[in-house]
Nucleic acid binder design. Structure first.
Lengths: 341, 341
DNA sequence: CTGTTAGCGCCTTCAT
DNA sequence: ATGAAGGCGCTAACAG
């Protein structure tokens, strides 16, 4: 027995297709009694709307854009790759996605790009950006024009975004701290912490979470002042090298930033000392480092998941649907040598 | 500018819609030269097929069934719940999914259920079952009748399934071992291991992986013989209680099985001793145990992900499509107190 | 307020 | 080997 269609509703309720459609789409111009009758029939015969057919008739299509920093580290290369793949995939779903890459750390340029977007044809944007007042305003403007705005990776808690897709970076920092604390055991040691810049909200939050758990639960461990390596592997190598030379007794390293290849070099150069190392993001570098034992754990966020989730959200927002909450939850993943795959 | 459609192809190639359709769907009855011309036009104008419209015209719908053991532990309750949710969701995608629950550990009953399935209307099944010869044969039969068969959660390596969706349980066991090894540090200790039954392939593999890494990398740790608790929490409580009483110096516990509430009871009853505990699957029990520090880590597989992935695969197999490999990879997740969410 | 009608992009008889 | 025409389930003018 085939599924009931709008025709079945019309027949059973004794009305026309147009009326059924009005009820289905909550459009005005139908007598309450009629609405009621149609609703009843819908319920009775167990009608389920065929979304695909509806979208076809509506000639609905989606225009989304990802706004991301034009950085070139492994993480951002990966992000770009994942979005590109999503672009290809989305073509069959009548969904056009484009990428706008804006200079990092330049709120003005970013705002300029946001203003350029044609909010007439645009249905949604997914943005990774620091939260400055100008950016907050630009986001507000887009939202007012009916564009769905999703924050990704780095949260924008005070902006009027529809949703944030990414991990809780405070919890991520706490997780890193917990791992190191448990690995290190009860003897007192020093931990070296390296961040990218303390401008990036995600990095700041990780550091915050890390510090919090260390003081709460591992007071015998001494966390050294943060070294800023500006996501630059050369600088990272130099700074870490210098730090380790100055304090050879350092027992562990927590790397918040990107540019981990420099870290690996610094660690392997001067070496027989066994140190526990936890870093962020699974890249070729960090994967190799896990495999050969230079890193002990990597805290990862699944970029593919983030991008797909953002797209699902923009689409759901565009047609006022809701989605499976659990599927959209981005997890703080702990990757060790043995669960690399 | 709107997307090119079949009409555009027809116009540009100087043929009719029917011919275009034949080329599009690789159906015979078109002169090679014509095929070539149409193909060229398709490429030129950048035509992308609207799958939704195609399925609509085709009146395509999908019939899938999940075959799972009728167990009632937290893990299986969760599995059932997730499938039920997927069933509701799938209705809008012209996809009908049903659940067949079969007695656990009864290959005959399972085979009988499989034979009952109407392979005429069925497009795919996702099955969790031990791999016996009869089951292998039943699977082969279904496949021969054109049904897509996906193994889930517990692998069926020697059966002719299209894909397996789940984690590598050997690696999961190794991950548990690595965690405990690192937590415990260099002093020699005893580890208690509790399994469900050594019939279930997934449990056996976890134990195997665990043992392997312990002998390879932590030879100073003494792994006690496996205790079988048959996924029963009462039995679990009793056996663990007895084991801890007999050897109070046990420094860690690895729980492969379900029935963890018994484990928690046994551990908290007799107590001030600090023991490291790693278990599998995130349930209400294990979540609470992580929160209050009874468990140190939980190895988890995302059941929602597994179910959604299996559905995507059955659908892709049914229409000979391929999908994003990385999205279908089920990860071995390490959950600590701090990355619970 | 309600109904008629013509599509949306694609597939599929049935002719030619 | 090719084409014309109707229909899949739903929506949206345009009439009444």
């Amino acid at each position: 027995m085939p599924r009931p269609t709008v025709h079945d509703i019309a027949k059973n309720a004794g009305v026309s297709l147009a009326t059924v459609d009005r009820v289905l789409n909550r459009r005005p111009g139908v007598r309450p009694a009629t609405v009621e009758r149609v609703r009843e029939v819908i319920h009775e015969i167990g009608y389920i709307r065929d979304v695909a057919a509806a979208n076809l008739a509506r000639q609905r299509n989606y225009q989304f854009v990802f706004v991301i920093p034009d950085l070139t580290s492994a993480f951002f290369t990966q992000l770009n790759g994942v979005i590109s793949e999503a672009i290809t995939r989305s073509l069959v779903d009548r969904t056009d996605i484009s990428i706008v890459r804006v200079p990092a750390n330049d709120p003005h340029a970013l705002v300029a790009e946001l203003e350029k977007l044609d909010s007439k044809s645009l249905n949604g944007i997914a943005i990774m950006a620091p939260e400055t007042p100008q950016i907050r305003d630009a986001i507000k403007r887009l939202k007012d024009q009916g564009v769905s705005v999703i924050g990704i990776i780095s949260d924008l808690p005070n902006s009027d975004v529809d949703q944030f897709v990414g991990i809780n970076n405070i919890a991520a920092g706490r997780t890193a701290g917990l791992l190191l604390g448990m690995f290190l055991g009860p003897q007192p040691v020093d931990i070296l912490v390296i961040a990218g810049s303390m401008q990036a909200r995600d990095h700041v939050e990780r550091r915050q979470g890390f510090d919090a758990i260390m003081t709460e639960q591992f007071p015998h461990i001494n966390v050294l002042p943060t070294v800023e390596a500006w996501d630059d592997s050369h600088l990272m190598e130099e700074l870490v090298g210098r730090a380790l030379a100055a304090r050879p007794e350092i027992g562990a390293v927590y790397s918040i930033a990107s540019g981990n290849s420099g870290l690996v070099k610094a660690l392997t150069k001067r070496c027989p000392v066994r140190r526990f190392v936890v870093a962020h993001e699974l890249t070729d570098t960090s994967r190799a480092a896990l495999e050969n034992g230079v890193f002990d754990a990597v805290i990862k966020q699944d970029v593919g998941h983030i991008v797909r989730s953002a797209i699902r959200m923009m689409r759901a927002n565009s047609d006022g649907r809701d989605l499976i909450a659990s599927q959209e939850k981005i997890r703080i993943e702990v990757v060790l040598k043995e669960n690399l795959n």
